[in-house]
Structures are given as structure tokens and as C-alpha cells.
Design a protein around this nucleic acid. Structure first.
Lengths: 337, 337
DNA sequence: CTGAAAGCGCTTACAG
DNA sequence: CTGAAAGCGCTTACAG
């Protein structure tokens, strides 16, 4: 049996499609009680559900927001930051009757995405990995689509109109963590970051560096494949072999810090007496490690909600009020510094 | 500047909209070389992107699949099982030019979801928590929408037409884990499961029980809020207080097993000599714990891909070929049994 | 090889 | 209070 449409319902109730349309859309003025009841009964009986393609065509609004996550990994949702952000965004949009079209895209294939090639959404949310240059290039590409955009974890750039940037205060929290570390008067520090470029990581790195350097701390930076705990451990081991045990190990995120803690335990180094350790972007999922890590808690879920809110307000108002928002990141004092 | 449509492009190229439509859709027969070039140039120059609402209305196909995750938690994406499944599904659909509309729904609010109230998608993927009765009720509700459905981690039921069920072999893997545990000749076992109802958990529980019971193992089952490591630890502590240290602790998933391992270490119990421990649904994200846990690796990503494939084949063929698929779950031998 | 025309399901300004 | 009609952007069978 074919799906009922406005005509089916109108015929069943003995009224015009215009009347059914009004009632289905909640218009109640200028509708007689009798008609209302008849139509509502028919809708119920036939199981009518409005086809969004029809409404979308008529109103040129589809009530769908696209979320493009540009990430080289197929498990682009693996990171709890992404997961929490998407959950916050999706829940907010759902409450407002909007759908979230989720799309993980490889950095090299952005132009092949149907979000780019076709006109499917009312607005776009973006989260991009890659070097600043590649990110800018991809952001420009998305911006040619003339959809309002909310970009997460990146900073405003020239020539990106109708966009709003939503960040967490990576630099501020990294500075604060570094300051706490400095209280231990370290002489050497090892900063461990992922080999994939993420803008937030670069910001943290910069803030760590700018705080430790002037204090005279000899700081070394190493990169590793953070999707693999073995690779993280090997990278840290290597660094220790070469330059000895540092006074501090700063993980660019909690995963890295957790691997560092296990490795230090194996080597019999005391934390924080011999080596202090910090993480970043704490999420509930890390609590299972049972480690009392000094770290910073990410407001990823709230960022998702805020991004959704800003995008829907933009759709309403015709423009973004502010170009950039930065959410505070709370330091989680632990036992590792 | 308004978005270009078929008319804009047709006017620019000096042809009819029918011709532009054909060319944009890749039709190449019966099109002269000159026309092809002219139109392609106009498309390029104007930055034309077909509006899916228009095509969708005409073809009654929207190339969008809905994924409904019925979960009481707002962070419905927190579990790595869900995350991997969604990534596999989303990637498969993207490759085929389909979009994934993601929607986390509270069990009590299913009928308020726009996936239910409106006609937005070509097909539906479902993942449901809750008691068997509540799940069946919600599955029935979704099935009244007459969309083809792929249901993950649940079993075929009466009165759900046009649906296909995709599972992992929870029972088989649980039986195998229990058998390995039995090799240690345990007399007592503690099974720890989440207090939220998930069908997969029930299946594992049943399989553990059916394997341990006939072997004469005194088996106790406790429930806990697995979203909170403290709550897990407290529940296990309580059980140990009451009935002493069991010979085996069986976690319904890896999170629970990891908390159990930390707790046993604190108590000075040796693993596996004093207490053997098993987990379930291992994912890369758990490797960071640095524990060599005996567990089972979930094919969640592959389940997502398979679900997407089955749904698109169903759209093509008009019906599902098989009603149920069960993917194997590989045991990961560790050092905790 | 090309285009005119019908129609997918819906909303809305307007006439009655 | 109700409905006829136009039109959103597109595809497709058909005529030329």
C-alpha cells in the first residue's frame, strides 16, 4: 500500500489539501472544530506523515544540518572529543526538530562528498584535521557552498564569510597545566603529541612551549601515532633512551598520558616524585583507567550544543551575531603533578 | 546571490533544463559534444549543485538513511560499540552517495522523534536498549512507518515485516569465554552486568549461566551503573563483602572488567591465580589501559557496513534476502584467565 | 540530438 | 471558515 499523502488524507476527510496542510502544521485559527476533528481522525487512521521533500521544496528549508568530520581515519568517531561533540549537537538539533547528517570525509576526498556536490542541508558544521594550510583550503571549499557554517576547533580566517568558530580554551588550559607543572621546578620536559595535525593540539603545544621555555625548562617535543598505544610507548621509550628520564611528561591528550603512566610504572619511576605527568581532554571514558591523572576536562558536549544553537539562530536571523566563541576548559587536579 | 538552479544553468548555457538535468546526472548518450561542454562550463562557472529536495520529490528517493539509537543516556554515542558501528555504517553509505541521519532518542520519546513523525528517509537502522517488551513495542512502532529496517543487536520477532536483523555472536563468544574459564576449575563466579537492559548483554548472561551452571559453579549476578566506574567498583566490593572473593569475575563488557582488575590489584589479589577475569567487546580504545585482558573482539564496524549494504540492496531489490545475520566474535586470549 | 510538459508532495497568499 | 491555484527544483517519457 502506497504511503498516504495530502491528497489521500484530504479525500478521506472530505476537505481540500490546503486545509489538511494547515491542520498538520498546527495552524488552528480559522478552522472549525468539526473540520479539525475529521482531519485529525483521517491523519490518524491513514497513518499520514508529511513528506519532508515536498515541504522542503516548497519552503526551501530542509531542517537538516550536515556535520562533516574531515579525518584520515575510517573510525573518525573513535575520539571521545568528537563523540561528545556530535552527541551534544545531535541532541540539540533533535529537540528543535532538525536532523543531523553525519559524514566522515578523508582530507583528500572533500570535493567528492555529497555534502559538497549536492545541495542537501540548511547549514554545515565542520571539524577538520590537517595542516593549517590544508584546513584553510578545505574550509574555503565548504564556504563556496554558501551554507552558513559552524567550524569547531579552528580559528577565524580571511575570506570565510557567514561562518562562526566555536572553540574550547585549549591555550588557556594548557598554560594553566604548564604553570602547575612549573611549581615542581622541572629542568627537563617531554611533550608528546599525535602525528596527525589537529589545530587544538597545535594550540596546546604552543601554550606549553611558551610557558615552559621562559622558565628555563629544556623542552623536547615528539610525535607519535596516538591511535596505537604501542606506538606511543615506543616513541616515549625512544626519547627516554636518548635523553634520559624527563622531569615532566606532557601528553597532548589523556590517551597519551595514560600510556606514559603505565610505562613509567613498568620502569619503576615514581609519579609525580620522579616524573610528573599531565593529560588533556578528560572524558568519563578515561575514568575507567583508575588513574588520578592531572588533566583538563573538555566541554565537547556543550560545544556541540552551542554550535547547533548558533546555527539555528543564524538560520532565523540571517547572520551570525559573533564570529567566535571560546568555552572554558576546567583543570582537573590529580595526583600526577 | 541566490543559489543557481536548473533554470539558471540552462539560461546561462542556452539550452533547456531537461538537457542540463541529463548532463548533471551523467547521461551521455544523445548529447552532442558541443552541448556537453557548454553545459559543463556553465555548471562550473555558476557553481551549480543539484537540490536534493527537488530530485527527491520527483524520484521519491531521498538517498538518506536514518539511524535511531534508543538509549536513555544523552551521550548515546559514548560506547565504543555504537561508535564503531555508526562509523562503519556511515562510511559505507557515504561511498554509495547516501547520507546518514543520526538520531539518539530516549526510550519514552520515540513517538516524538521526527524520524517517526515525518517521512524523511528511505530506510531505517535501529539500535534499541530496554527490556525485550519495550524494545518490541518500539520496533513495532518504527515498523508501522513502512520503511525497510535493519535492526542491530536484536532478534527477529513476529509482526515486523520488511526488516533484517544484524547481530554479533554474543552467545557463542560468551560460551567460549566461559569454557576457557572452566579450565581453571572455579567453584564460584561473579557476573557483573549493566543495569540498563541491552539485548546483547542478556544473551551473554544467558550463555555464561548455561555454561557455568551445569559445571557446578556457584554463580552470582550483580547489576551496576556501568557509566560510572565508582559505581561498578562499589557493586563489586559489596558482592565480595557479602560472599567473599569469587574464583572468577566475568564482566559483561571491558569497562567492567577493567574496573574489576584495578580493584583486585588494590586488594592484593593475584590475577589469574586467585581470581580470573574476563571482559567482552574489546575495542582499540581499551588497549590504552595497558591490561592484557582475556576478552572478545566485537565486529561492530563490520556490522555497520553490513547493515548499510543490506539496506541499500533491499532498496534495490524490493525485499531482504535473509532475515537475520550473525557475525562471528573473535576471542582475544589474554593473561587474566 | 533537444526541449516542452507533466507531475512528485507540499505551503501560502488570496479569493470567496 | 474553506479551497483553487501557483510554484518550489527536479526527472522522464515522449514528440519533434
Amino acid at each position: 500500500m502506497a504511503k498516504p499523502n495530502l491528497h489521500t488524507v484530504a479525500a478521506h476527510a472530505g476537505v481540500s489539501i490546503a486545509t489538511v496542510s494547515k491542520i498538520v502544521n498546527g495552524v488552528r485559527y480559522g478552522i472549525s472544530e468539526a473540520t479539525l476533528e475529521k482531519v485529525l481522525a483521517s491523519v490518524q487512521e491513514l497513518g499520514y506523515r508529511p513528506n519532508r521533500a515536498g515541504r522542503g521544496l516548497r519552503t526551501l528549508r530542509r531542517s537538516i544540518i550536515g556535520m562533516a568530520i574531515v579525518d584520515p581515519s575510517p573510525t573518525f568517531l573513535a575520539d571521545p572529543f568528537t563523540t561528545n561533540l556530535v552527541a551534544g549537537l545531535s541532541n540539540y538539533l533533535s529537540e528543535q526538530g532538525f536532523g543531523l547528517l553525519l559524514h566522515g570525509i578523508k582530507p583528500k576526498h572533500v570535493d567528492a562528498s555529497f555534502l559538497v556536490k549536492e545541495n542537501v542541508v540548511d547549514g554545515l558544521c565542520l571539524m577538520l584535521s590537517g595542516s593549517a594550510q590544508l584546513r584553510l583550503q578545505n574550509t574555503r571549499l565548504f564556504s563556496t557552498l554558501s551554507h552558513p557554517m559552524v567550524v569547531f576547533q579552528d580559528h577565524a580566517a580571511e575570506g570565510i564569510p557567514d561562518a562562526c568558530f566555536v572553540n574550547q580554551d585549549d591555550a588557556g588550559a594548557a598554560r594553566e597545566l604548564a604553570r602547575q607543572v612549573l611549581a615542581r621546578k622541572p629542568r627537563t620536559a617531554l611533550i608528546v603529541i599525535p602525528d596527525i595535525f589537529w589545530p587544538a593540539i597545535e594550540l596546546r603545544l604552543e601554550a606549553f612551549w611558551q610557558t615552559l621555555k621562559p622558565a628555563g625548562v629544556a623542552t623536547k617535543i615528539i610525535r607519535c601515532d596516538e591511535s596505537n598505544p604501542m606506538a606511543i610507548a615506543r616513541a616515549i621509550e625512544d626519547a627516554i633512551e636518548r635523553t634520559g628520564l624527563p622531569d615532566v611528561i606532557i601528553g597532548a591528550n589523556d590517551k597519551i598520558a595514560i600510556v606514559a603512566l603505565h610505562l613509567l610504572e613498568e620502569r619503576g619511576a615514581r609519579v609525580p616524585e620522579d616524573v610528573a605527568v599531565t593529560g588533556f581532554n578528560a572524558f568519563a571514558s578515561n575514568d575507567y583507567a583508575g588513574l588520578d591523572l592531572t588533566t583538563a576536562r573538555s566541554p565537547a558536549y556543550e560545544m556541540g550544543e552551542l554550535g547547533g544553537k548558533l546555527l539555528l539562530e543564524r538560520l532565523e536571523a540571517g547572520r551570525f551575531e559573533k564570529q567566535e566563541y571560546t568555552l572554558p576548559v576546567r583543570i582537573v587536579p590529580g595526583a600526577t603533578v
